[in-house]
Design a protein around this nucleic acid. Structure first.
Length: 735
DNA sequence: AACCATGTACTTTTT
DNA sequence: GTACATGGTT
């Protein structure tokens, strides 16, 4: 009896095939993680030093789970296996060697928001007409170029006949220049620079080739060109590369995923073994058949037939509702019923095409008091207050990070405005130094008048934080920064509910910092910031958390749930409008693969739903039922168009939509709506005088949140609205 | 410099 | 419908 007895024939074959390149075509739910973990166990059993084994996953969550499962299987030694994501892997390598490429090893990682601000700045600087060339397009173009391992120079040569692309090449060049000046790398750079490092420094490549003699890559269908480049470089020497993927689940083409990586694997790695895992252990026959029938409509795919020994199971339920409010309401009702029947909330997932669709569900869950968790959308670390505090930490960690410094220089308010910042920046450029260093030299900047002292005070503050960073723990530093800047005090003074939520978020950030400090072997500020930069929302999804999970179909990849609701099954939503109007047939096929991914997440029961009428971007849209629904054979579906088809009572929906605002600010209290100043010395109908507009008659006084809004009809300037505390109106004698 | 009011663009999906 | 950018006002 061995641990391998529980595997089926193909799985066992894959586990025992340890030498040479191996392509594992693993259908949804075919137990690929089991194969990978058992394969690692087998390698170790065969005498391979765990130190020589590397497994690359797509998310941190997948990496963590794999490590746990390997730990359970092999016991000691497993901690030496390198299990991580592409991005973390690259960071680890670059932290040791990037100085060879002229960067400082303590580089900062820029997220997409940082990326955007940097590009925005460059577009302004170059006077780019962002109407014809939006920043977003520039960003995507640069990102794609990096995915294809194309330098700015190469980009320029390649596209020099195209006016727009030439412009993009210029921006790309400047963008890289500024990143380097800020000692920062964006997400794409992490891979790009690692490949570059291996290219220009064969001795470094050789070191890692020796180290990673056995490489495994999960979710291989979603790798892009540069990721492929990276792993093929590493595997070149020993050729022990095992990739696991499913071409039917390739859903990241928009992000550069290159399906050729999987389709041409055998061409690139000669003598590659190919093993197919086609038995599904996850879903019922009905669910699996539906998935097969849908994906069958795609042309560009490797033929395969997923099968299962599981029961037929329940029929798939399909409802078309009148509106999205009904849809969400009924789904939440059904979830309530399931819970009553003893189903755990965490066994239920709601999937949708776009993050924006989550909002209505959130309302309904709040009303029904059902615990839920929304994955994705606005990331915790993207919130303003969290980002502000992080930028203080960044400024302490990497003084060259101009973006971080500029973000916080006037947060909280220090009276440092755009003009002052420009002056400092000009000086920095003249002296060829970083922005913060320019602040330290404020004394030499002649153009600064009154602002000089403010800048000096700010740079002293940062210097003080640096000193503190040397002395104490990260937690101490965090408290010290909050205390010295008065950030939380300021929020407390605001007293609004929103401010209280922000304070909570800052406390949450503190919890994360403390947790990091406890968990990390050698906690450092750089390490903390790195971890923050590389976490995805999905990574924090804990199995112990008993809540209904809501997320996009993309985020759901790799997960499974007994009960799955796929909502918004409408042409124009899913498949999305963009892919319907696109001439490129491939795009619709990608949507279909996404649908396949969604269906195959379900283990026991699948609910599909659509709305006839849906509000999108403030407009009502009438959508047809998704073409993907038509591709599912009728006999698998329990059709139920009936219920609300003739419902002519939209009032209910409008009612709940109006109540929305209340639920978004659930703790709205009135105690803070303190009517401002004493009463005013004038009233409606009185004659008043204004310093600029002269004489006028008061038309109306409205008592706003913290001030009176006064409408005055001025004799010479007409009707104006103004706030009493600013306007300084004086009552004058009546005519 | 800071604040508010108004206008505009956005939505595909994310490590 | 919202988040952000802009312009006007003190």
């Amino acid at each position: 009896m061995s641990i391998y007895d529980t595997l089926n024939e193909q799985q066992r074959e894959a586990v025992f095939c340890t030498e040479g390149p191996l392509l594992l075509l693993a259908g949804a739910g075919s137990g690929k993680t089991r194969v990978l973990t058992h394969r690692i166990a087998y390698l170790i059993e065969q005498g391979v030093n765990p130190y020589h084994i590397m497994a690359i996953t797509f998310t941190n969550k997948a990496a963590r789970e794999m490590r746990e499962r390997v730990d359970a299987l092999v016991g000691s030694g497993a901690e030496h296996i390198w299990v991580s994501t592409f991005h973390s892997t690259c960071v680890r390598i670059l932290r040791r060697h990037i100085d060879k490429l002229g960067y400082d090893n303590s580089f900062t990682i820029y997220d997409s928001d940082d990326q955007k601000s940097l590009i925005r700045g460059i577009c302004k600087q170059f006077r780019v007409d962002t109407k014809s060339l939006p920043e977003r397009a520039v960003m995507n173009a640069i990102s794609s170029a990096k995915d294809e391992f194309m330098t700015p120079g190469e980009y320029e040569t390649r596209y020099n006949f195209d006016f727009k692309k030439k412009k993009i090449a210029e921006i790309y060049k400047e963008y890289q220049k500024q990143l380097k000046a800020n000692n920062a790398l964006d997400f794409d750079d992490l891979l790009f620079k690692t490949v570059e490092l291996f290219q220009f420094h064969p001795e470094v490549l050789d070191y890692y080739q020796e180290r990673f003699r056995y490489i495994m890559v999960d979710e291989y269908q979603d790798t892009n060109t540069i990721q492929f480049q990276l792993i093929s470089m590493l595997a070149r020497k020993y050729q022990n590369l095992c990739v696991v993927g499913d071409d039917d689940q390739s859903i990241y083409k928009f992000r550069g995923a290159n399906i050729k990586n999987i389709l041409n694997f055998e061409g690139v790695f000669q003598d590659a073994e190919v093993i197919k895992l086609e038995q599904n252990y996850r879903s019922t026959k009905n669910i699996l058949n539906a998935a097969n029938e849908v994906i069958k409509n795609n042309k560009g795919r490797k033929e395969k037939a997923l099968w299962t020994e599981n029961d037929d199971g329940d029929s798939i339920v399909f409802h078309q509702y009148g509106t999205e409010y009904e849809e969400a309401g009924q789904i939440v009702e059904e979830i309530g019923r399931l819970a009553k029947d003893g189903v755990n909330y965490k066994n239920i997932a709601i999937l949708y095409r776009t993050n924006a669709q989550s909002r209505i569900f959130e309302e309904k869950f709040m009303i029904k008091n059902i615990p839920y968790r929304i994955v994705g959308g606005m990331n915790f670390y993207q919130r303003k207050e969290v980002k502000d505090v992080i930028c203080y930490l960044k400024a302490v960690d990497n003084g060259l990070d101009d973006l971080a410094v500029k973000r916080i220089i006037n947060v909280p308010r220090r009276g440092i405005g755009a003009t002052t910042i420009d002056k400092v920046q000009t000086y920095a450029i003249e002296q060829n130094i970083g922005f913060l260093d320019a602040c330290f030299e404020a004394r030499q900047i002649e153009s600064l008048a009154n602002a000089k002292r403010k800048i000096e005070k700010f740079s002293e503050l940062i210097a003080d934080f640096r000193e503190q960073a040397q002395k104490g723990s990260l937690e101490d530093l965090f408290h010290y920064i909050l205390k010295q800047t008065g950030y939380v005090t300021g929020l407390e003074a605001e007293g609004t509910e929103e401010a209280l939520v922000r304070i909570e978020n800052i406390n949450e950030l503190l919890n994360k910092i403390v947790a990091y400090e406890e968990a990390a072997e050698d906690p450092t500020l750089s390490g903390l910031l790195e971890e923050i930069a590389l976490v995805a929302d999905i990574d924090s999804l804990e199995d112990s958390d008993n809540r209904v999970v809501l997320m996009t179909l993309h985020s759901a990849k790799g997960l499974e749930f007994p009960y799955v609701f796929m909502s918004g099954m409408e042409d124009g939503i899913f498949p999305s409008y963009m892919t319907i109007i696109s001439e490129d047939q491939e795009e619709l096929e990608e949507e279909r693969r996404l649908c396949y991914v969604g269906i195959t997440r379900a283990k026991e029961r699948l609910y599909l739903s659509a709305a006839k009428r849906r509000m999108m971007q403030g407009r009502t849209q009438f959508n047809k039922v998704s073409r993907f629904i038509d591709e599912i054979p009728q006999e698998l579906l329990k059709l139920d168009y009936g219920v609300n088809l003739n419902d002519k009572r939209p009032d209910h929906d409008i009612f709940s939509s109006n109540r929305r605002t209340q639920f978004r600010k659930p703790f709205q209290k009135h105690q803070f709506a303190e009517p401002k100043a004493e009463s005013l010395s004038y009233g409606a109908g009185d004659r008043v005088s204004h310093i600029k507009f002269g004489q006028g008659t008061v038309m109306e006084i409205v008592s706003g949140g913290r001030d009176y809004e006064v409408t005055v009809d001025f004799d010479k300037h007409g009707v104006k609205k103004m706030f009493a505390s600013f306007a300084k109106l004086k009552k004058t004698e009546q005519n």
